[in-house]
């Protein structure tokens, strides 16, 4: 069953581009990644799903119901964590959580305490006095306290230290095992990679591809940078699977996909002074999708 169905969703703001003709589905029980650079339209899509903004054309269904028409009904089962969290500054943490819980017709006190414990959040503090990271933790507790069936996260990890990020991911995995579906938007591929089953890649307001993480990993690109003692022949690294090859004096750059042993052997045969093998960043992955489209 599809928890989210997005059909030809388009949103334009005056003349500027929002999102164009976006379609994808998120299945029940999935952790679905939604990645793209800043300004690609991730937040626009998410805000439309939450009926904060209204689509210009197309529609989206959540739990099989139209996300605008049945918004209040649907939102009972949605937990949302925005990229930047803002709450009523003069309230105490616990009061805000109680206020948040009062919108859902169930007792969430126990769950609030549990989540605050996991996320190490001080319930007695004033919101105004919280650091950015602590506000984010409050956002997480606030988004999960009513045990939603669908968790929507818009760049949730900014401001969290690695330890908290780890705890947060574990929390998401637990919720997921209990049956919650997660839509996770991010511009960092690595965090999506470790958590998600499938990802949609969005660029400039359009979906570039929807793929399984396992497929993406098969497409695993490595970025090579090699510094050699002597200038190399331009064709030396021109192997199958090498792209964007650049040779400048003693420095060689390229992206590689395929069997790593071949390249490493090639490197071993040269007299090198240094070598860097890195994960390509998102931009470079996108480059790959653009090349494929052409």
């Amino acid at each position: 069953m599809n928890v989210i169905e997005i059909n030809h969703l388009t949103k334009t703001y005056g003349k500027s581009r929002g999102i164009t003709d976006i379609s994808f589905n998120v299945e029940e029980g999935e952790i679905f990644g939604f990645i793209g650079p800043n300004g690609a339209g991730k937040s626009t899509t998410i805000r439309t799903l939450l009926s904060l903004i209204y689509p210009t054309s197309g529609n989206a269904k959540i739990f099989g119901k139209d996300c605008i028409e049945f918004a209040p009904d649907i939102k009972k089962e949605i937990g949302y964590l925005p990229s930047e969290v803002f709450y009523y500054d003069n309230m105490k943490v616990f009061d805000l959580l109680k206020y948040s819980a009062s919108f859902y017709k169930k007792d969430c006190t126990k769950r609030i305490k549990e989540l605050a414990e996991i996320m190490d959040l001080d319930l007695t503090k004033k919101i105004d006095d919280l650091s950015l990271g602590n506000k984010k933790k409050l956002g997480i507790v606030q988004g999960l306290l009513h045990e939603p069936k669908l968790i929507i996260l818009d760049e949730p990890t900014s401001g969290l230290d690695p330890l908290m990020q780890q705890k947060f991911f574990e929390l998401l995995e637990t919720e997921n095992q209990k049956g919650a579906t997660v839509l996770f938007s991010s511009h960092i591929l690595s965090e999506v990679q470790r958590l998600c089953n499938r990802v949609a890649i969005i660029k400039e307001g359009a979906i570039v591809t929807v793929e399984k993480i396992s497929t993406l990993q098969e497409n695993n690109y490595k970025k090579f940078k090699i510094h050699t003692k002597t200038a190399l022949d331009k064709g030396y690294f021109d192997l199958p699977g090498v792209s964007q090859l650049e040779v400048k004096d003693h420095l060689v750059h390229f992206l590689f996909r395929g069997n790593l042993n071949g390249v490493l052997q090639k490197i071993a045969e040269t007299d090198i002074t240094n070598v860097w093998i890195e994960e390509p960043d998102l931009e470079e992955i996108f480059m790959h999708y653009y090349v494929k489209e052409d």
């Binding site: 939450l50 009926s51 904060l52 209040p72 009904d73 649907i74 939102k75 009972k76 949605i78 949302y80 925005p82 803002f86 709450y87 009523y88 948040s100 919108f103 859902y104 606030q142």
Partner: peptide
């Protein structure tokens, strides 16, 4: 705080 209030079931 509009995001908070308007993502509630109201």
């Amino acid at each position: 705080t509009a995001d908070f209030l308007l993502t509630k079931p109201v």
